[in-house]
């Protein structure tokens, strides 16, 4: 197992990590309430508790780098610069949403920024990311660039039991593609604990079977994720091939929605233990101690994010619904006239 090189994040990076995490947290808390008030149709899988993972990875990526996401995809899009207006509008099924209301939570995407979609199919992302990485390597070659764009699939512990994950990891490794596999190990696939769905406790152990480095980091610590992901992403960019980075994390709310379907599959003690490691207050404490931000400045970030959210929800609620006459649009790309 490769150990990540210790390097110090700048004040700017610390603030950036914080900003992304705070945006995710408030976006998700409000989205969860909207779902439970019946204002956001369908099912929302919330990212609350796992913010450090998306944020720690995304700080290293530009809009030219791609990610693939999961059913739990809002946090990935927010961290990749997602616009709250277009996001809430999508959750509400409005024409002004990122997917014009056609996809909703489980398919929310922003192809322009390299966000190749949340996904309703578990483990669908890694093979698609391998395709994007193939494209990145191919284009870098024909354009004569020695630094490549990187593709980053996010996926859960449960997803690593799908054949699709295995096929993607193997292909990325044999072709040394610029992929960084980010496993968000939150200890459960739906309601099944990891110990019952796989016979290992570290998903990173699987990396050896593909011939790629496997790294474990604290997924409740944005700086730890930033460090581990940074090293893997730089290696991928410069032709060193893929890495599997496992982030140990936890979802604070239920599999779907805030309260979920009321199954008692996690103990209160376990929940409390992880909640005590909430990535956001932890990070804020560190910044205050380091003198990077004051408590007042931190509060101002939260306030600004909340103001953006209030305005964005209003925008979404007042946005037009899709026109049923457009139902068949976008099934196909129009064929160019010959």
């Amino acid at each position: 197992m490769a150990s990540s090189q210790a390097s110090e994040p700048s004040a700017e990076v610390l603030k950036d990590l914080h900003y992304r995490m705070v945006r995710i947290r408030h976006f998700e808390e409000e989205a969860g309430k909207l779902m439970e008030q019946g204002k956001s149709p369908g099912a929302l899988h919330l990212y609350i508790g796992e913010e450090a993972v998306a944020s720690g990875v995304m700080v290293h990526l530009t809009d030219n780098d791609q990610i693939t996401s999961t059913h739990r995809g809002h946090g990935h899009l927010v961290a990749k610069g997602g616009d709250f207006k277009k996001m809430y509008a999508e959750l509400f099924g409005r024409e002004t949403g990122y997917n014009k209301g056609r996809g909703g939570s489980m398919h929310i995407s922003n192809v322009d920024a390299g966000m190749l979609g949340a996904n309703g199919i578990v483990a669908a992302g890694p093979p698609i990311a391998v395709g994007a990485a193939f494209s990145n390597k191919y284009l870098a070659r024909i354009e004569g660039r020695d630094r490549m764009d990187v593709a980053v699939p996010f996926f859960g512990d449960g997803a690593t039991n799908e054949g699709a994950f295995h096929e993607a990891a193997n292909m990325a490794a044999i072709w040394k593609l610029p992929v960084v596999f980010i496993c968000e190990n939150n200890g459960y696939g739906e309601f099944t604990p990891q110990a019952e769905h796989q016979a290992i406790s570290d998903v990173a152990d699987r990396a050896a079977g593909y011939g790629m480095p496997g790294v474990i980091c604290d997924g409740m610590d944005a700086v730890a994720v930033w460090e581990a992901a940074g090293e893997a992403i730089e290696r991928a960019r410069t032709g060193g091939g893929p890495t599997l980075v496992e982030c140990k994390t936890y979802r604070f709310v239920d599999h779907v929605g805030l309260r979920g379907i009321g199954l008692h599959y996690r103990t209160d003690e376990e929940l409390e233990e992880w909640r005590a490691r909430d990535p956001i207050p932890q990070h804020e404490q560190r910044m205050i101690e380091m003198g990077v931000m004051t408590a007042e400045e931190i509060q101002a970030v939260h306030d600004a994010v909340m103001a953006d959210i209030t305005e964005s929800i209003e925008f979404a609620e007042n946005s037009p619904l899709p026109d049923p006459a457009d139902l068949l649009n976008d099934v196909y790309t129009p064929t160019a006239a010959s």
């Binding site: 997917n99 139902l327 068949l328």
Partner: peptide, 16 residues
């Protein structure tokens, strides 16, 4: 159903 994937937005799904 018409020849499209199932749309998310409730107005479209009801039409579908």
């Amino acid at each position: 159903a018409p020849f499209s994937p199932v749309p998310f937005s409730p107005v479209l799904e009801q039409t579908y």
